[in-house]
């Protein structure tokens, strides 16, 4: 009778501790009493056996394959961006929201302000592109055929950019036109593209403006001049 009452007193506590015995994290001093109870309690014995099976199944490798390397390249582009290096560490206890996660924050008032700012920026970029002398921006309306000689980008400044994967071909075209840029290489590792600027090459100040315009576009995750190409 005494044994029975002792077992029933242990049971509620044992029920709570079984998972931690199963995953091996139960404190060593609690283990002998729990094992003794499990041995004598059919309900806990069954529970323990089922939890062992559940844990084994949860630890089994699933069919999902994760592309760690390409994910890391995206992070690398982020931590190597000048924006990241400018950001004060103490002011960033939480990460700035990434674009994909920010995209789903449709109901936030902050995002509505952000959306307004982006629209304003897009308008400014469009206005800038319209006002930009066509010859300087490399967007003159020359008639180009497939057999026309390609312009040379050997001596001009270049930039490395990473576009959002959600960017459509049409939107990509608009981004390139606004910047007066052309894709001359890529995609390289991490889906980075190299952009060239049609002759005449932009001055350093003009290049900085174009890079700034690229960075201001939410679809451009990273934009950086190739240092040895800038004179």
């Amino acid at each position: 009778m005494k044994l029975l009452s002792r077992l029933s007193a242990l049971h509620p506590r044992a029920e709570l501790l079984i998972p931690w015995l199963v995953n091996g994290s139960l404190p060593a001093d609690a283990e002998p009493a729990l094992r003794e109870h499990i041995a004598s309690c059919p309900q806990c014995r069954e529970d323990y056996a089922q939890q062992v099976r559940v844990r084994e199944a949860m630890r089994a490798e699933g069919p999902l394959v994760f592309a760690a390397e390409s994910s890391y390249q995206k992070l690398l582009a982020r931590i190597q961006s000048p924006e990241a290096n400018r950001e004060p560490r103490a002011a960033a206890p939480e990460p700035s929201p990434s674009r994909a996660t920010a995209a789903v924050r449709r109901t936030s008032p902050a995002v509505r302000w952000l959306a307004a700012a982006v629209i304003l920026q897009a308008f400014a970029i469009g206005l800038g592109a319209w006002m930009w002398p066509a010859s300087r921006a490399g967007t003159d309306a020359r008639y180009v055929t497939l057999t026309s000689a390609a312009p040379s980008y050997d001596s001009g400044p270049r930039a490395r950019v990473l576009f959002s994967t959600s960017l459509s071909v049409g939107a990509l075209r608009a981004v390139l036109r606004a910047a007066g840029a052309h894709i001359i290489d890529g995609p390289a590792d991490g889906d980075v593209y190299t952009l060239g600027f049609a002759p005449p090459p932009p001055s350093r100040a003009a290049l900085e403006k174009r890079i700034a315009a690229l960075r201001a576009n939410p679809a451009v995750l990273f934009a950086e001049p190739v240092q040895d190409s800038v004179r």
Binding site: G62, L64, F66, A68, S71, Y72, K74, L75, R78, I79, A92, P93, E94, P95, S96, P97, S98, A100, T101
Partner: peptide
């Protein structure tokens, strides 16, 4: 990466979001 991806797939069920959260997490780590 792998253990975080599996863990986060229990939260979101969307790999693209899980990947974003992993990179946000390691941004904080950095």
């Amino acid at each position: 990466h792998r253990r975080l991806a599996r863990f986060l797939m229990r939260i979101t069920t969307r790999y693209d979001l899980a990947e974003e959260i992993i990179n946000d997490t390691f941004w904080v780590v950095w």
